[in-house]
Design a protein around this nucleic acid. Sequence first.
DNA 1: TATTGTTATACTCTATAACTATA
DNA 2: TATAGTTATAGAGTATAACAATA
Lengths: 151, 151
Amino acid sequence: MPVELDAVDGLAQVSFLIQRMLERRAREHDVSVIQTRLLGILRDRTPTMSELAQLLGLDKSSTSGLVDRAQQRGLVRRVASQLDRRSVRVRLTDQGRAQVDTVGAEFAGDIDKLLAPLAAEERDALGRLLSQMVVAHAAAHGVDRFATGPP
Amino acid sequence: MPVELDAVDGLAQVSFLIQRMLERRAREHDVSVIQTRLLGILRDRTPTMSELAQLLGLDKSSTSGLVDRAQQRGLVRRVASQLDRRSVRVRLTDQGRAQVDTVGAEFAGDIDKLLAPLAAEERDALGRLLSQMVVAHAAAHGVDRFATGPP
DNA sequence: TATTGTTATACTCTATAACTATA
DNA sequence: TATAGTTATAGAGTATAACAATA
């Protein structure tokens, strides 16, 4: 198999593979990728609607609808804020937490399978290279790496 | 910056970064990722609607709508087949080709920037590791790597 | 006045089901 | 009958603009 991709093409191809894996896993549990991403953000946070919109990179009205649908499915709930009575916090329900844990574990398993052809030292080397890229990108763009990526 | 991700987390993070880059580039040109993917498929093909639905992994009705909207924007056109009068082929217009070339080049440039922190030998090593993964996955799943990935 | 959040509206994307035309 | 494609319908996801309540 002498097929050889350069780093740019390799990253593009692998990204599409991984994205499709996530789509499939989410759909198996009857949710969308964006719903899963919402739950992922809420795993270690209870943000206001505004903060949530910021984290998701969506308009506040889009976020309202997203949370509406997640709430209808029993995955999240809205909690009134005591400090500012205009404000609402969004919290994961037990069912939502179970859901995101399951999808997250399956998704991680998919990526792990994708790594199967690599030897242990190669996996380590890959992790180091990717870390360099992610860290440099976060430094340059001021992004909290753990805020944006699901799950 | 002693932050170190393992290969699984690194792949997940980088995939989300790359996906967001593509979304941004597509939106800058007023199209969606799926529209860009459609154009990418048509760069070296003139498939029937059925073939297109297969390549995109969508229902034929979804594909109809997608092509409708791309056609309204002047990016593709439908061509009647002579062999089978039920059948329709979809072809890129000049404008569609210019669009996908532009977005594709910008997207490749984004990935290239993401690779900036790596030395030349590291980029080569990364390309080799990712190639191994893509090739093994294609062999196991029987996927034409160039059919599915945009652009 | 400014901010937080929701609602009204419109468009894209997607699937299922029913349909037309051709094979 | 079977296949290629479209249309009707419904729902998710998104943004803009207008709005209510609170600060």
